[in-house]
Simulated scan of single mutants.
Amino acid sequence: MKFVKVVTFAAALLATGGVLSACGADKDTNSSSASSSTAASTEASSTVEVTSTASVSNDASVLEKALSADGNWIVAATADVTFDKDLTVAGEFHDKGDASADIYRKFALYSQDADRNVTAEYTVTVPKIVVESENFNIVHGTVKGDIEVKANGFVLNGAKVEGNITFDKQEYKDSAKLEEDGASVSGDVTVAE
Rank of each mutant, 00 (worst) to 15 (best):
S33R: 07
S33I: 03
S33F: 02
A34D: 13
S36H: 12
S36G: 15
S36A: 15
S36M: 09
S37L: 01
T38H: 06
A39I: 01
A39K: 05
A39P: 01
A39F: 02
A40Y: 01
A40E: 00
A40T: 04
S41V: 08
T42Q: 11
T42P: 12
T42M: 08
T42D: 13
T42I: 02
T42Y: 07
E43M: 14
E43V: 04
A44L: 04
A44V: 08
A44G: 06
S45C: 13
S45M: 13
S45K: 09
S45T: 14
S46N: 10
S46F: 02
S46V: 06
S46H: 06
S46T: 09
T47A: 10
T47N: 06
T47F: 01
V48P: 12
V48T: 15
V48M: 02
V48L: 13
V48D: 12
E49T: 15
E49I: 12
V50G: 05
V50C: 02
V50R: 00
T51I: 02
T51M: 01
T51S: 07
T51V: 03
S52K: 09
S52R: 12
S52A: 11
S52N: 13
T53F: 07
T53Q: 02
T53V: 01
T53E: 04
T53H: 05
A54M: 05
A54Q: 15
A54E: 11
A54R: 03
A54K: 08
S55G: 13
S55N: 11
S55L: 07
S55V: 00
V56H: 05
S57W: 11
S57P: 11
S57H: 11
N58R: 10
N58K: 07
N58T: 11
N58C: 15
D59A: 04
D59E: 11
D59C: 08
D59P: 03
A60F: 00
A60K: 03
S61M: 04
S61L: 03
S61I: 00
S61F: 00
V62N: 06
V62I: 12
V62T: 11
V62E: 04
V62P: 04
V62A: 00
L63S: 14
L63T: 12
L63M: 12
E64V: 00
E64P: 02
E64C: 08
K65E: 03
K65Y: 06
K65D: 05
K65N: 00
K65R: 04
K65P: 08
A66H: 06
A66N: 04
A66M: 11
S68C: 13
S68V: 09
S68L: 13
S68Y: 12
S68Q: 10
A69V: 02
A69T: 03
D70Q: 11
D70R: 12
D70A: 15
D70W: 11
D70G: 12
G71A: 14
G71E: 15
G71S: 15
G71V: 09
G71D: 15
G71Q: 14
